[in-house]
Nucleic acid binder design. Structure first.
Lengths: 147, 147
DNA sequence: TGGAAAATATTGAATATTCAACAATTGAAG
DNA sequence: CTTCAATTGTTGAATATTCAATATTTTCCA
């Protein structure tokens, strides 16, 4: 029944390709919206994760926002310069640094969230509730099955 | 019924995030396999697309392999150095360059294809035929609905 | 306890990507 | 026809990412 792609089947039959293509497109759309605030998608993720108010270590944060450690360090440097977030040494484990969002970061985060939500609404409209939910469910379960 | 995420809902409820996460994971796995041949995922895509034997312009190719034009130009430069592909000026339209795969490129492409196929087989096993096919179908239709 | 190994974050050099400008060719309008 | 705009691909500078090495702190265990 379900077969893997053959050597000579088009690249568009590969799950890896379809994921890359869909991700590229959706990410590009989100990027366009967030550009209103002059902020890359990754900074939205960082602010959103930190918005729970709890301190998050750089390692935790890197996992959560899908960035490598050095990339995150440098992006956080910029955000600290912009006074969006700040670092605190973790008193329980002094190897760690805990990241927090500033008031300015919280305000920006709110504006970014509404831009992101409005994108999701747009997707729901053009793609449909049913498909969207089913796709989310399948993606979650793919991620689960990959760990 | 199906609602978009709220401002304060976790980032994991956003389609954009789930796509990025799944793409990152699957891409990383593919990258691992292809590293046996010392080749990045993008070069597999390029070789696969060119393997139809027809010449493809840089613009076409950039779209097909999900790369920006300058990035593609530079990657193709490397592949030309490695004698995997070659450029031919399009006689019909001399602004264009047609890309072709060399014999060496074809041989490499075959080896890369089996690595990629074996990854798909692995996904089918752990994730299931049904889910895989359904996910592919939904991704295709998401991409369609985004154009 | 003492010292080696692991975990965490950062840095700097090497690499890759992107943006804006450019060159060449074609298309289109007057 | 001729000129101006649009298309195609490349280049170089600016920017961003990654890899390997480092510093610091903690954990483990002999």
């Amino acid at each position: 029944m379900a077969k893997p792609p053959k050597d000579n089947s088009p690249i568009t039959e590969h799950l890896a390709y379809l994921l890359a293509q869909a991700n590229r497109e959706i990410n590009r759309q989100l990027e366009m919206r967030l550009s209103k605030e002059g902020v890359p998608v990754e900074q939205w993720r960082i602010l959103k994760v930190l918005s729970d108010g709890n301190g998050h270590s750089m390692g935790e944060l890197a996992d959560a926002v899908l960035l490598n450690h050095p990339t995150l360090t440098k992006m956080v440097d910029r955000m600290v310069s912009d006074a969006l977030v700040y670092r605190v040494q973790d008193p329980k484990d002094r190897r760690k640094v805990l990241m927090f969002v500033s008031d300015r970061g919280k305000a920006l985060s709110k504006r970014l969230n509404s831009l992101a939500v409005s994108q999701e609404e747009h997707i729901l409209e053009s793609y449909g509730d049913k498909s969207t939910n089913e796709l989310k469910r399948l993606l979650e379960s793919l991620i689960d099955s990959s760990n």
